[in-house]
Every structure is written in C-alpha cells, then in structure tokens.
Design a protein around this nucleic acid. Sequence first.
DNA 1: GAGCAATCATTCAAAAATGAATGACCCCGA
DNA 2: TCGGGGTCATTCATTTTTGAATGATTGCTC
Lengths: 305, 305
Amino acid sequence: MNDPDWSLYRTFLAVCRTGSLSGAARDLGLTQPTAGRHVDELERLLRRTLFTRSPQGLMPTDAALEIRPYAESLATTAAALLRQVSGATERVEGVVRITASDVIGVEVLPPILARLQAAHPGLVVELSLSDQVEDLLHREADVAVRMTRPVQDALVVRSIGEIELGLYAHPDYLTQAGTPETFADLSLHRMIGFDRQTAFVRMAAAEMRRLNPGFSTVEEIGWHYRTDNNLAQLAAIRAGAGIGFCQTRLAEREPRLQRVLPEVRYPLPSWVAMHEDLKTSPRCRATFDALVEGLQDYVSAPSSR
Amino acid sequence: MNDPDWSLYRTFLAVCRTGSLSGAARDLGLTQPTAGRHVDELERLLRRTLFTRSPQGLMPTDAALEIRPYAESLATTAAALLRQVSGATERVEGVVRITASDVIGVEVLPPILARLQAAHPGLVVELSLSDQVEDLLHREADVAVRMTRPVQDALVVRSIGEIELGLYAHPDYLTQAGTPETFADLSLHRMIGFDRQTAFVRMAAAEMRRLNPGFSTVEEIGWHYRTDNNLAQLAAIRAGAGIGFCQTRLAEREPRLQRVLPEVRYPLPSWVAMHEDLKTSPRCRATFDALVEGLQDYVSAPSSR
DNA sequence: GAGCAATCATTCAAAAATGAATGACCCCGA
DNA sequence: TCGGGGTCATTCATTTTTGAATGATTGCTC
C-alpha cells in the first residue's frame, strides 16, 4: 500500500533541482504531465505535500527539503552503480570519478590525467572540483585527492607528501607597492585571501600566530581581496592584485610570480584515497596509481631555487 | 538510452535476496513475469547478464554480485527516507531504527524501550541487533549503541560510561569443577568464549597479558565452548557449561550467577550515537535521550556487592 | 497594454507495463 | 515411476502509464 516506486524519487529530485515540473521533465526525458503525476503520487503515498504549486515554478515544502538529501543519496548511489558497471572488465575502461580541490584539478591534474587516458583510451574521467570533500564511502567519487588525512575505515589511502604553500605576488605589484621585508609589513599590503572560515584559514591563523605572536588572529591581516575560490585567488595574484598564497610548485613554473617572505611556508600533507572495494576495479586502480605517481612527482619535483 | 529506471534496482535486489523471480515477485507484490521482465530490461540497459536462469532458481553472475551492494545501499536509503517521513511531525511518532549488540538488545534495552513507548504510543521501534556496526552515516540505523568510540563526523555522540565485564559461572559448575583461585587456574576450566577474532577478543588478549604475563595470547586459554553469539555465551554460563564473560550489571540481577576472579575486569566504554541531522527529528531525539538516560542508569546502578 | 515565453492543469488517444493463465522443465519423495 | 510442488517462459487481454495537444495563468519586455 505504501512504499513508493523508487523512480518517483528520481522525479522528485529532478523537480527539486530544476524547480519546475517542466524542467524536471526535460532533464529526465519525460513530459511535464508525467512529472506532475509522479509528484502527485509520491505526495499521496507519503501523505505529505511536497511542493506548493505556482505558475512560475514549484516551491519545495519543509517535508520536501527534509527528504531531498535522501533522494540525492539515491542518485549518488545509482550513479556509482553505473560507473561500476561501466568499468567492470579486465581492461582499464569506463567512467572514473575523481574529486580534488579546484587548483589541483585545473593546474596539476590535467597532464597526469592526459597521460593516463593516452595509455587507456577507453577511460572516461569525471572531475568534480570542490573544497567540500565528497564522501568516498557514499561513492560520491571513486578516487579523491585530499589535503586532510582521511580518517574513515574501508579506504585505501596513499600519502603523496606535502604540498607547500607560500606567499607570492606579481612583479608589477611589488614594483608599485614595494616588497614587504617582515611579516608585519604585510598589514600594509593588499592581501588576497579567503572569504569564509575554512580548515585552511584556521590553520593559517595558527601558523601566523607562530610566526608573528603580535597578530592574534589571521583576521587582523585584513584581506583586501576575498574569495573562497582558490583559482580566483591565483588569477588575482597573476593579475597583480596583491599578495596571496600559492602552491610553491605551481609558482615555480611561472617566472612572473615572485615569492614574498620565503620564510612563510605552509606544508599541506596530502593524500590520494579510494574505497577499498574499488581496489579490484581496474579503472579505479589505474587511476589511483596514476594519481599517486603523478602527484608525488609534482610534490617532489626539484625546486628551481 | 541508458540509465535504468530506479525501480528496476529494487526488483533486481529482491531477486538477489530471494534467489528466484517468483520469490521476488511475492516480496514486491508483483507477478513473476513482471519480475522477469524487469530483470531482462536491466540486463539490456546495463549490457550485462545478471543471472543464469535455471528451473530451480536464478544464479547471480559476477556482474550481479558486483552491483548488489549498490542496490542494497539504495534500499537502505529508501527505507531511511520513509522512516524520516514517518516521524516528521512535532510529536514523537513514526519508526525509529536502533542498532545495538545482541546482549544489550535482549537484556538491557527492553525495559528502556518499553518505557519510551509507553510515553509515546505512536513510536514504532525497529531493533537491529548485531555486532557489526551499522553505518549511521548511511542511515542504516537512526540511533546506535556502540562499544567503540564512533569516529565519524556528523554524529552526535554521548558517553554512557563504562560497561564492565567480569568472569561468571553457575554455582552448579563451580561445585562440580571447583572455583579457580588464580588466573592460571582458568586453564584447568571449561572456558566459554569466542569463535573468531573480534575487537573484544583482541582487547581481552591485551588485558590478560596485563593480568598474567605468563599467558602470551588469549588463545592459550583454550576456549572450550566457542560462539560469537554473546547471547549463546550467556546462556551457556547460565546453564553451567563453564566460566565466561558477562556484563557485571547483568550478572548482579541473577542470584544464580557467581563471580569468578573478581580482579578480572574489562571496562567497555560505551556510547549512544546518531546522525546530526536527526537531532531535529522528535522521534530520534526522544529515543536518543531515553537510551542515554536508561543506559547511564544501567551502567551506574548501585552495585549489589 | 499587447505580445511573448515561461509555468502548471486537463483531456484523450496511444503506448507500455502488468497480470492471469498456461505450458515446459526440474527436483524430490512416495 | 509417478505425482506434487517448485521453478521460468510465453501469450494475450487488461490495466496503467505516458505523451501530445490544448487551455489558463503569470511575469516580463517592448
């Protein structure tokens, strides 16, 4: 009598995501009346109103917001199942989903993945770039590059060493604003930094207190250019907007970036991780190995100093 | 073109579980031809043979075994979603799923849960008793009683103190076999213990080495009555089969159980845990609180010594 | 304010999924 | 060796689901 058909959850989720029956229908390859009927039936079976209908779209109710995470989880699992099937052969082929920070994904991974795909033409790579760690246990991703040590069980974890961060600026900026000689000088500069409080920010705060006890918190630096998007920070540094953090290995590739206060160093211990069960999956195994090797090279490349 | 309807996974899972199309159809309220067609379509869409048909049932192929965990995960999530909906009111009602060890579930929880349900008649309790910890993050259970500190994030955890284990035997046994005076005497007795290596066994081994450096491993005790089922161990002790471990609070209730070597004590730090998101769910919150209170009472009840 | 581009709701015919019935096969026990 | 109970496969009528078309409403733009 109860127990809705699982496909109703898929429609429900699509409606949540698109905000309209029509949009959901487009995404799913259905028609708008069908999507509407699915929602109707789900509402009937759950005995809950899920959306308040309006001509310009549907507003999810509290009940809908409550069950949406579950529907997302269903979608994630279904996607992982398909990836698993796609790569269930002896060869390295199918879809592998990698999660990493955006900087790593844009600046470091491309050549590594290109080499991997050259070796395995059947391999399709999905890159999910974000700082919020996708959950490997939930199979939101197959392989992850992490800056924090994964603590969960049932994960295969390999250290790739420490990615070092330093302060950098464009020569144009330094010519115009001068080069800081001491940590305290930084307060006179345009600093490129973070918008919200993140793990890295807290760590940086602790490190700055260590280097300069006069500053009680990192907030006192007074960021002049705030964004949580690390790529945007990097672009800002390149554009001469001020002084900001950049991975030293990355900066070494760019002759036009100049290091500031070389004693400021944040080593970020980094790892590659994947679910234990995926060890036997050729596509995941090959990707994992390629990432470990490529990133170890990246981390330990001879410094150009 | 691809992307099977999610309901196909449900049928697939039912076929896996029952081992036959007919059985799956019975479970799902379908008919056998429909179940068969679902499997056919899933096989077509995944381009994999999932079962080898035979008159006495269906044998899952390797591909089926590979994707079954994903289907199980879908089922778990769908069930959690329904529980969430069932209890999404201001009142404490709906289904709450609790996981605990079997001894706790059989010997300790009943009065606590009975009281809870007396206070909230609309509350339905699902008890999942096993030593393998169900994953709270995956919502396999809403609330868990754990003997190991939960490490995962996003969990609400409350300590309930230490559950103490001791050695016990039935007076009949001691009359017949004698009462051991020293730890070394135990090797002359019929010991009731574990079949396989578990976390507790490893801990007990360490503890025994501490108490008695002469024994290098717990295996040397030579269990005479082996089972991983703690309830069966308890029953064996009660039946006078030998000496075994029992929670002291439990044993104190039973005048016919006599403590052996009182210096042998294993305190098991214990916790109640649930997913953070469920804090706002009245049914989970009430259950969590009732378990914490009830178990704290159980742990700290005045000893009858 | 008219026209356009969205939205959702309704209707009705077409398509798809389902179930009942039946047949074929296999295993087991009498 | 012969049912009886279990399985899956096939067929066909029925039910259900779906989609196309249409209408009604809203918001936006010109």
